Simulated scan of single mutants.
Amino acid sequence: MTEEKMTENTEETVKDSEVTEEASEETTEQEAAAGEDKDGKKSIFGKKKSKLEEKIAELEDARMRQLAEFENFRKRSEKEKGQMFEVGAKSVVEKILPVIDNFERGLASMPEEEKGTPFADGVELVYKQMLGALDEIGVKPIEAVGQEFDPNFHNAVMTVESEELESGTVAEELQKGYMYQDSVVRHSMVKVVS
Rank of each mutant, 00 (worst) to 15 (best):
N9S: 11
G168N: 06
E163W: 01
E25G: 04
R105V: 13
D182H: 09
V123T: 13
M130H: 09
G168S: 04
S183Q: 06
A144Y: 00
F70D: 05
A32S: 10
L97V: 10
V87H: 14
M130K: 07
E166K: 05
E114S: 09
V19L: 13
K38G: 06
Q83D: 14
T10E: 14
E53A: 09
K128R: 09
D135L: 08
E86P: 00
A171S: 15
A89Y: 03
F73P: 00
E143P: 01
E71D: 12
G132S: 15
T159D: 03
V157R: 12
V145H: 00
K55G: 08
E164M: 05
T10I: 15
T159H: 04
N72T: 10
F45I: 10
E26W: 13
R186W: 02
K41L: 03
L52T: 03
D135N: 15
E4F: 09
T117Q: 13
G168L: 02
I142Y: 01
A89P: 03
V87S: 15
L134I: 12
T169A: 01
Q175I: 01
V160Y: 04
T159S: 07
D61G: 06
R186K: 07
V14G: 05
K81I: 14
G122C: 09
E112C: 06
A156C: 11
K49T: 02
G177C: 00
T169D: 00
T159A: 05
V170K: 02
F85I: 11
G122M: 11
S91L: 09
G146Y: 07
F103E: 10
I96Q: 12
M1T: 08
K95P: 05
E8I: 05
V184D: 04
D39E: 13
M189T: 08
Y178K: 06
K42L: 10
K115R: 15
M189R: 10
G116K: 11
M158P: 02
M110W: 05
D101Y: 07
E113A: 15
K48G: 13
T2V: 10
E164P: 03
L125V: 02
S24R: 11
E172H: 02
E3F: 07
L134N: 14
I96M: 14
